[in-house]
Every structure is written in C-alpha cells, then in structure tokens.
Design a protein around this nucleic acid. Structure first.
Length: 455
RNA sequence: GAGGUUGUAGCUCAGUUGGUUAGAGCGCCGGAUUGUGGUUCCGGAGGUCGCGGGUUCGAGACCCGUCUUCCUCCCCA
C-alpha cells in the first residue's frame, strides 16, 4: 500500500465525466458574464508574497500557501528572525512567492499595473483555481475554482443591480430550483456600530452578529460580552435580532434604528435603491433578501455585501461578493471603486450533484463507434469516419478486431449513441448496419445515406 | 491553528475477548454465445489490513508516532 500514489489533502482528480460537468457550469457562468459585458482576463497562479499578505486579515495570511525559495535564494533565510522566534518574518524570508488565495486581490494588482491600458469602468471576469491551506471539510477544498466578475472604476449602484441579476441568471440557467441572494451593506453595519457607541469595534460586532443563524441570539450576546462590548451597546444591538417581514418592512425598521447615524442611513439608502430596482425588475428563481446579520469576513468590503445560499442542501454559501471602495488603494491607486461577485464552482458542482441536476447528456459520450471487422472493412470505415467528421459528427474506429461482444461492451461503457457494423456482407452490398445503442434498434443503410440517418 | 473521528480488494463495507490460509456485495477478466452491449448463469484474478515503530510465543485487532478521511470550532467558496 505504501507504494500507492496519492494526492495532497484537499485536492481532487477529475475524471472525464467530472470535467464535462465542471465545464457545463463554467460555460453557463461565462455565457451570462458575457451577456452583461464582462471580458475575460487571467493572472498567474502565484504572486509575490507581498501582493497577497496582509490583504485577508490575520486568519487569511495563515491560509496562504507559500512557495519555498529555491537555489541560491535559500540563503536569504532570516535566521535571526528564527532565533527571535519571529516565525512570520522568518517565513517571509523563506518564501518570496505565494499561491493566489482568491481572484480579487490579484485583480486589484492587475488593475493598478495596467491602469493605462484599461478603460474604466473596467468589467472583467476570471475563472481560475485558487488555493487555501485550510482544513478540508465538506464543500471545502485546498484547491478550488472561483468564477469572478468585477467592475472597477465606477461607484454606480447600477452594477449592484446587474450583479444580482447575474446571480439569478446563472443559477437559474443551472436549473437550481431555489436559492436566496442575501444582501446587506457594510455602511449599515458601520451605522450599527456607531449608534451602539462602539464604532471602532465594528469587526468584532459584525463577526458576532454574522453567527446569529448558527448560534442564536444568546450565543451572539455571549460572544459580544466575551469581546467586552458594553452592555449598553448590546442592548442597542438586540433589536436587530427581531428584524422580520418583507425587505421593505425591514428597511423601515432599520431607518428608525439608525436614524442618528449618517453612514448607517447612507447604507440604507443604497440598499433600498437596489432592492426597489430588483423588486420592479423581478428575478427568475432567486429570492433577494435583506439580511442585516450578513457580514462576511473580508475586511475590504465597504458597500453592498452579497452571499448566495442554495435551498434544500447542506452547504455553505455558493457565491459571495460585495463593493470595495479602496481595494486598489492598497496598491497605490486611490479613488477607484469596485464591486464584484464570485461563484464557487466546486460547491455549485457538489450541490448540482447532490440534487441530481446535471442534464443527462452533459457527460458527452462518443456519438459513433465503428466496429472493427478486419483490414479490408476498416479501410472503408476510415473513409466513412472522415465523412462523418466533416459533417461534425464525432466518431472512432475500434482499434483491433476483438470479439464483437467486447467491442459492443466498450461502446456501451463509453456511452456511445450509435455503433456501425461494417463486415464482409455489408462491404459487398455497400451498406452498414447502424445500431442505436439506446433503443437497440438496427437498421441497414447505404453508405450514401449514413450521415442522414445519424442524429 | 484547537478538539474529535476514520483508514481492510478498483468501490462500498464485514472481520467476536489478540490465535491456522483475512471475507462479502458490486466492479473487473474469462466462458455459456465463432456477427451484437446494457439482463441471466458458471468460473477466475485481485489484499505487506494507510505508513513507521512498539508490546506479545503470536497483531487487521492493543500502545506510540505519522499521514489521510470526515466532523465541530476558527475562517470561508
């Protein structure tokens, strides 16, 4: 057993049927991105460590895969830092490069670097794998694909509307029966922190209330206390837990709660604009829900925050996104607002698999297999195969004159739609036997009628 | 990063308090069927019991370490 090969934890191999299914998801996502005017870009799998570190908070840094320096660069190791037990600095001296952790930060770097070649607002999509040194769990991998669409260079709320429509369009196209698009606004969260008198504790407060549906009201209050948020503040936060009813009703309540907070009211105004627009436009299958407890950990969001959950399946969020006013600021380009969303292709894959929502023909089996009867017959098969391919019909010839039984079984395993039997008798009569592998029906057709009988 | 859990044939899993030669189903290969697959029947191959060490006359089973699996926390797609 020790000789058996293995792959690292949290990674997966993909068989042809898996890749067909994944491409099906990618194709739907791409087609919608394109409909909304997004253009594709790609960035390297790994970036300079400095580009990534410090962008995802302390937690995030821990989850970034580092690439060990090679050759002479090994000598750059900061041994002194090791002796001082400053492990982060030691690690940085050992690894100048790191695998990308998401697509957003590399995109920000990309925008700053190519700012003079881009016209703004710049709309890009990007479908590439990312890597996280996380503990693998259900729906959680160390290597997985993200499918991002972002707009940078405009603070127009029209894009928030577009992105909600994209969530809806893609997931509807993928035939997902039900899903909730949760929306919130970071400014509302700031408003909450402000009116509770704990403005500088916004992260602790939001991280705590984000867990409401998981640990309940008591749990959240305990966590707030543990983080030494004042009792007065907690009393002021409590009404949030009761927030219910339609989006419009929730908005009205929040307007009362946050009336003292300028930034909070600004957030409500933005949110209301998006909710109203979507309400008027309507969604296909998605439900848009204002969820004040939606926080999301990434600290670069400044406006709208999105998260999508599929119904009837135990799985974390399948999409996320939000507005970040100053992401490129980290790389020295100020004043460019961006907003974007991300589809978690691997989680969507798992959900579609679990709910059995992949179309039957997605695995794209071979259309036609020529059974091999011998040298003379194969010569004719080669000619016919060339004609089929010219007409766009994919086909193969079985490579050897194995027993017919074996050849038929192979055709069956490959999911072949038609087999063509061309033996001695058929060659003499200029015909083939065309067998429909699903119905089992065989028909004798002439060489010239063959193409017309396939499909 | 913390705690727990799992690992036996290609796959899913049995395997009693430690005791001969480690089993089943499915899959695979061959045959029944020399020009017919997906059904049936018969036969066969395939395992250093995750890996390393220890206890023992004897370990798949017990102990330690390690890797892996899944789960909770953390965080997230």
């Amino acid at each position: 057993m020790s000789q058996k090969p293995a792959i690292p934890k949290g990674t997966r191999d993909f068989l042809p049927s898996d890749v067909f299914k994944r491409n099906y998801i990618f194709d739907k996502i791409k087609s919608v991105f394109k409909l909304y005017g997004f253009a594709p870009i790609e960035t390297p799998s790994f970036e300079l460590s400095g580009t990534l570190l410090g962008k995802y908070g302390e937690e995030g840094d821990r989850l970034i895969f580092r690439i060990l320096n090679s050759g002479e660069k090994m000598k750059k190791a900061d041994v002194q830092a090791l002796q001082e037990e400053n492990l982060p600095r030691f690690a940085n001296s050992l690894a100048e490069k790191a695998l990308r952790y998401d697509l957003t930060v590399p995109f920000a770097r990309f925008v700053v670097q190519h700012q003079n070649e881009l016209s703004f607002p710049f709309k890009r999509y990007q479908i590439q794998p990312v890597w996280r040194a996380d503990r693998p769990q259900h729906g959680r991998y160390q290597e997985f694909y993200q499918c991002d669409a972002d707009v940078v260079g405009s603070d127009s709320l029209l894009y928030e509307i577009e992105l909600v429509q994209i969530f809806d369009a893609v997931l509807t196209k993928l035939n997902l029966p039900g899903f909730t698009i949760k929306i919130n606004n970071r400014k509302i969260l700031s408003g909450i922190a402000e009116m509770s008198g704990e403005s500088d504790r916004i992260v602790d407060i939001t991280v705590a209330i984000d867990k409401l549906d998981k640990i309940g009201e008591e749990g959240v209050i305990n966590e707030l206390r543990n983080k030494s948020i004042s009792e007065i503040a907690i009393e002021k936060i409590k009404p949030l837990f009761q927030l219910q009813g339609t989006n419009a009703e929730r908005i009205q309540l929040m307007k009362i709660l946050l009336k003292e907070s300028e930034i909070g009211m600004k957030g409500i105004e933005e949110l209301e604009f998006v909710l109203n627009a979507i309400h008027n436009l309507g969604l296909e299958r998605g439900e848009l829900e204002f969820d004040v407890t939606l926080a999301r950990g990434l600290n670069y969001y400044t406006g709208a925050i999105f998260e999508v959950k599929a119904h009837d399946v135990k799985m974390g969020s399948i999409c996320g996104g939000g507005r970040y006013d100053d992401l490129t600021g980290l790389f020295g380009l100020k004043g460019l607002s961006g907003v974007g969303i991300s589809f978690g292709a691997d989680r969507i894959y798992d959900v579609l698999n679990e709910l059995n929502l992949f179309p039957a023909d997605v695995t794209g089996g071979l259309s036609v297999l020529f059974v091999n009867f011998g040298e003379k017959e194969v010569t004719k098969c080669l000619e016919l195969a060339a004609e089929l391919r010219k007409s766009g019909i994919d086909c193969e010839i079985y490579p050897s004159t194995a027993k017919l039984q074996k050849q038929m079984k192979y055709a069956n395993d490959r999911g072949v739609k038609y087999t063509i039997l061309l033996g001695e008798n058929e060659l003499a009569s200029q015909t083939v036997i065309l067998k429909d592998m699903i119905s089992g029906i065989q028909t004798q057709v002439s060489f010239t009628d063959l193409i017309g009988n396939i499909k």
